[in-house]
Write a protein that binds this DNA or RNA. Sequence first.
DNA 1: CTCCCGATAT
DNA 2: ATATCAGGAG
Length: 211
Amino acid sequence: MTRKEKATAIAGILDELYPEVPIPLDHQDPYTLLVAVILSAQCTDVRVNQVTPLLFERADTPYAMLELSVEEIEEIIRPCGLAPSKAKGIYNTSRILVDEYGGQVPDQFEDLHKLPSVGRKTANVVLSQAFGVPAFPVDTHIHRLAYRWGLSNGKNPDKTEQDLTKVFPREDWNKLHLQIIYFGREYCPARGHDPATCPICSKYGVKRRMK
DNA sequence: CTCCCGATAT
DNA sequence: ATATCAGGAG
């Protein structure tokens, strides 16, 4: 069985389990999604969704965000962790959006990736979920499952992104990213993972020692 | 590679 | 007590 054939089989299982894939981070537009994704680093989406209403009540546009101080932003987002760097990132990103993009979130990867606190994963989420552009964001969950399933050698998230975009059809990337996240939470978690009870690992999981 | 860091599951 | 959570920067 080739890697591509395995990918096709896995996509079939995911489609059956998750025909609908709602976006887990609450948002209203590209800007609020971008902010929510920055906050989601090393934090559950549930907690991000608890914090963003408080933040967006104060500021839901880059212009309004600049009316707040970095310290004020920091105080609101503290429960998400890594608050000092995330607050600076949100503020400085808003500054650039206002100064260089007319207050709009750019829809090109290179422009997004240049923004402070926006790496490959965040830029790809915004492209995928705010603009509907095919992209395959690779976070720790995608990285972990791709390794367990033998779809990538697990060296780093960038390599995993290369491998996954090769074996899955472009038009399915956006959906698959979310399906894999939901599946990982329910059947294939990072802690307390039992390959025997995972419907995909039990059939297609690599023999290598699981991470 | 290390550090950033609050809350929760194990 | 320790690992982990929709990572990114130095």
